[in-house]
Design a protein around this nucleic acid. Structure first.
Lengths: 189, 189
DNA sequence: GTCTATAATGAGATAGAC
DNA sequence: GTCTATCTCATTATAGAC
């Protein structure tokens, strides 16, 4: 794994969060990386292989980060708060969303294999959110009316929509307004 | 009524709901309409003009439909239920979303003028949802904890996320699962 | 690993005949 | 209004030199 390889993945991720994987071209990446676009084919023969490498790397990182986030949090409420902050942070100045949100928005134009990975990633996050809500209910930091699984999915899609609406308006504060009810509805204390 | 013009808009709308406006080409539309792509330029000289006509026509139709939906509903709860059914119906077999959702997902790649129209459309719907929640609170068909405006925005982005997640998975039932908490949380009776 | 050069395709768009 | 023909440009991708 050369520097260029990882650097190309970094650039592809950043650009995909801003405009979607489909809109990112080898020409864009070549310019950003300071090499020629033909050179990118040495690392990623086809664009689908770049996409797969991108989502696979992200899946590993996300699973690790969520696990770490659970461990570090002293309550389910803390973990959920940290996840909210993470989503908010991915918005940058309102020109981007998290990679998972970007891929869900763009899924209809993604290679089939990539779309399957996106579904698995969504299920991973929804499951994690359900666990966090369950934990928060037990430690009394969270109050949800429905079952943790369906509430986890509800939180996920609300944050997904909030991120995409904020990017569309290029206004990160829209995310805050659109996700405020999660805090208001769920957190105790 | 004129034939090709309206037909092209219909086809562009249908394809945009499935794959996003950016992914729809003159070549696609020409094949679907049974004409040559050069002929499309007679009706829409540039693709941006097609996009503008598309979103403008949708804005008119949506405003009318929402107003009619308010009038026909006997309570705020009924109006919200009808809106939920409308979103669900736009999913078709899980391969599409409502045009507004599709444009928000694709906004980063849309012509600037189109993006402005998308923002105005989003504000229109969020305002309508806020009014409906307010009305439902007064007629006691709806129970919301927060203010109608922020709850309206929350409902909007949850439905936005639910639609896009369902399209990504090509599974319309995912929309049902992801929007179930709206009914559970809000409706009285 | 990166380069130049070059397909091969498909996109949006224009000119002008009918 | 629709056609053929053509243009320009961007895209993914390959071959082969260095």
């Amino acid at each position: 794994m050369s520097d260029t390889y990882a650097n190309l993945l970094d650039l592809a991720e950043s650009e995909s969060c801003a405009r979607g994987f489909t809109a990112v071209s080898y020409g864009d990446l070549a310019t950003l990386a300071g090499i020629r676009k033909a050179s990118i084919h040495h690392h990623f023969p086809a664009k689908a292989s770049l996409g797969l490498a991108l989502v696979d790397r992200y899946a590993d990182r996300l699973a690790g980060e969520l696990a770490e986030l659970s461990e570090r949090s002293r309550s389910g409420g803390d973990a959920l708060r940290a996840y909210l902050a993470r989503c908010r942070n991915d918005l940058r100045d309102g020109t981007a969303v998290s990679l998972l949100a970007a891929m869900i928005a763009d899924a209809a134009n993604l290679p089939e294999e990539m779309r399957g990975q996106v579904t698995r990633l969504r299920e991973l996050v929804v499951r994690w959110l359900g666990d966090v809500l369950q934990r928060g209910r037990q430690d009394r930091s969270i109050s949800v009316s429905g079952g943790p699984r369906e509430e986890g999915l509800a939180v996920f899609v609300q944050l997904l929509g909030a991120q995409l609406a904020a990017r569309a308006a290029r206004d990160p504060s829209l995310f805050d307004a659109a996700s405020a009810t999660i805090s208001a509805r769920i957190f105790r204390s």
